[in-house]
């Protein structure tokens, strides 16, 4: 199995982003996804900046994929998508069917986690369009993955979201701006104040969700380190690690060690994650649930 660094979902200052990816050059990841998936208004880095980073990472031996926006609203979003598709150097991850429409039959692409690939018929449709890799929707279980693997078209690679706060929803509304009492059109890029998202707790003080602009994520951090042997046995090709603000190098190292040894202990990530661990989706239950180890009873 290969390791992929998923697209950075948060809005970090430009220098922090550059530093993050320059560090990632030395990390044992095989694939790096770059670009803005969440909010088109975030422009600390323009496409040219992402392409410069992409070239640096490619020279260092990483496969680079440029991720497209998940929610297209304004006309400028469509122009941005066209520029991404026309970049001429790196494949694109399609996170909306508009991107599939632009890419279909023209260049190989990755079918991203927001396309809702729930069955083999959709997978084969995407293969016909030119998808060479697909990402399992985060809410699907190991059973569904196994069934999808059995129907997988030839040459199609499978990627699973294995680490990070789960991307759960998108909205027209910016929840970060709403919390701060700001209109979306004058948001002041306040999402930049929360490098791992803005925590929302239930009234009994339990961490529940985090707001990341128009995106809602889980407060818990998905952690499939304990399932790496199962993921390998299921024929998964790539594990996606979603960036968090701190300790990402250690997280990558822990997954690399687990992949090389054929077995991972989730405890290796203790103290290194933004939220409490979860893996419930993988086992077919509520996403927030946590099982301590492979097939063992819930903790």
């Amino acid at each position: 199995m290969k390791l992929a660094l998923g697209p950075l979902l948060y809005f970090w200052p430009r220098q922090r982003v550059l530093d993050f990816y320059r560090a990632a050059v030395g990390w044992p990841v095989d694939i790096v996804y770059l670009g803005e998936v969440v909010c088109a208004k975030r422009r600390a880095l323009r496409l040219d900046d992402w392409l410069t980073l992409a070239d640096e990472l490619a020279v260092a031996g990483k496969q680079v994929v440029l991720s497209s926006l998940a929610l297209l609203e304004a006309e400028s979003d469509q122009r941005g998508l066209q520029r991404l598709v026309d970049n001429g150097r790196h494949p694109v991850e399609a996170n909306d069917w508009a991107a599939v429409y632009r890419l279909g039959g023209r260049s190989p692409f990755v079918a991203g986690p927001h396309l809702n690939v729930y069955n083999g018929e959709t997978l084969s449709l995407l293969a016909e369009q030119g998808a060479t890799r697909w990402v399992l929707p985060v809410e699907l279980s190991r059973e569904t993955l196994a069934a999808l693997q059995a129907e997988r078209p030839a040459g199609m690679q499978t990627e699973v979201f294995a680490f990070g706060r789960l991307p759960l929803a998108f909205s027209a509304r910016c929840f970060t701006a709403r919390v701060r009492g700001l209109p979306k059109d004058a948001c002041g890029f306040c999402c930049g104040d929360y490098p791992d998202g803005l925590l929302a707790e239930s009234q009994d003080g339990a961490p529940f969700l985090v707001f990341n602009g128009i995106q809602t994520q889980s407060a818990s951090t998905c952690n499939l380190l304990g399932a790496v042997s199962e993921l390998a046995a299921a024929g998964v090709d790539v594990l996606r690690l979603s960036p968090q603000a701190e300790h990402m190098a250690e997280v990558v190292a822990a997954f690399r060690t687990a992949l090389d040894g054929g077995h991972g202990e989730p405890a290796a990530l203790a103290g290194l994650t933004a939220g409490a661990p979860s893996n419930g989706y993988w086992y077919g239950g509520a996403g927030k649930a946590w099982r301590a180890g492979d097939g063992r009873a819930p903790a």
């Binding site: 927001h114 809410e139 759960l168």
Partner: peptide, 19 residues
């Protein structure tokens, strides 16, 4: 939320509009 792309319900309960 964008309909069809909201997993909040399955995150909490295991059941979503999609599934």
């Amino acid at each position: 939320m964008v309909e069809g792309r909201c997993y909040l319900s399955s995150y909490v309960t295991g059941e979503s509009p999609n599934t």
